[in-house]
């Protein structure tokens, strides 16, 4: 269902949110057009957190039920999460460079996002090197739970650590006029739909890959007998 309908949903949504972000929304008072990157930065960061929330929920569901589909969901969502985290990081750095003249500022949200990237790249590495289908799934689920639980703690501690510094940077000190809010909401919605579509597609791929593997194994077994 998702695979059939969502592409047709995404096309108009994508065009609309691009139009809103680049044409309808007015330039920001001090940052001018540079601020427009925010729409996509915030939307990808949102998707990143959404993906990791899905990893967390699917991991718990997997540990409780042992059903393979939860494990697949967690894996595919983690991949997407790393992808969106990367976009959020790069767009955040470009933003930082154009606004503060620095590629990296130790701003708590950006720093937390960087740590998220490391945690979930580690998650993908654990999956890539894990041994035994079921055991790998369980280990990954364990990390999927504790990794997410750690996020608010990391954020709090980075924030607290940062508060000792004399300079304070407000990333969202943007004077949002109503049209900007509309453009931001549109971007977030479009990205969310994009995430759901990608997740569904990726799950379908994984499902096909597994079935092919089983078919191959059965063929091989049949051939030997």
């Amino acid at each position: 269902m998702v695979r059939r309908i969502f592409p047709w949903l995404l096309l108009p949504m994508g065009i609309t949110s691009l139009y809103l972000a680049f044409v309808v929304a007015p330039p920001e008072a001090t940052m001018a057009d540079r601020q427009r990157i925010m729409y996509f930065h915030v939307a990808s960061a949102w998707n990143a957190y959404l993906s990791f929330l899905v990893v967390f929920v699917a991991s718990i569901a997997y540990l409780r039920t042992g059903a393979r589909r939860w494990d697949r969901t967690a894996f595919c969502s983690a991949e997407l999460g790393v992808f969106f985290t990367s976009i959020a990081l790069v767009s955040g750095m470009v933003w930082g460079r154009s606004v503060w003249g620095k590629w990296w500022v130790w701003e708590p949200r950006l720093t937390t996002t960087l740590l998220l990237w490391f945690i979930y790249v580690g998650y993908l590495l654990l999956r890539a090197t894990g041994e035994g289908d079921e055991r790998r799934a369980r280990m990954a689920a364990g990390l999927g739970v504790i990794g997410f639980v750690d996020v608010p703690i990391v954020h709090m501690s980075v924030k607290w650590w940062n508060s000792y510094h004399p300079y304070v940077i407000g990333l969202t000190k943007v004077d949002m006029v109503p049209m900007m809010v509309v453009a931001l909401v549109a971007a977030v919605l479009t990205f969310t739909v994009f995430y759901v579509y990608m997740l569904d597609l990726r799950l379908h791929m994984e499902h096909l890959r597994e079935r092919t593997q089983i078919l191959k194994e059965n063929l091989l077994q049949g051939g030997m007998r």
Binding site: F118, I119, L143, G147, D150, I153, V154, S157, V158
Partner: peptide, 8 residues
């Protein structure tokens, strides 16, 4: 795996 979680 450990160091990102260990930051706090």
């Amino acid at each position: 795996l450990l160091f990102p979680l260990l930051v706090p």
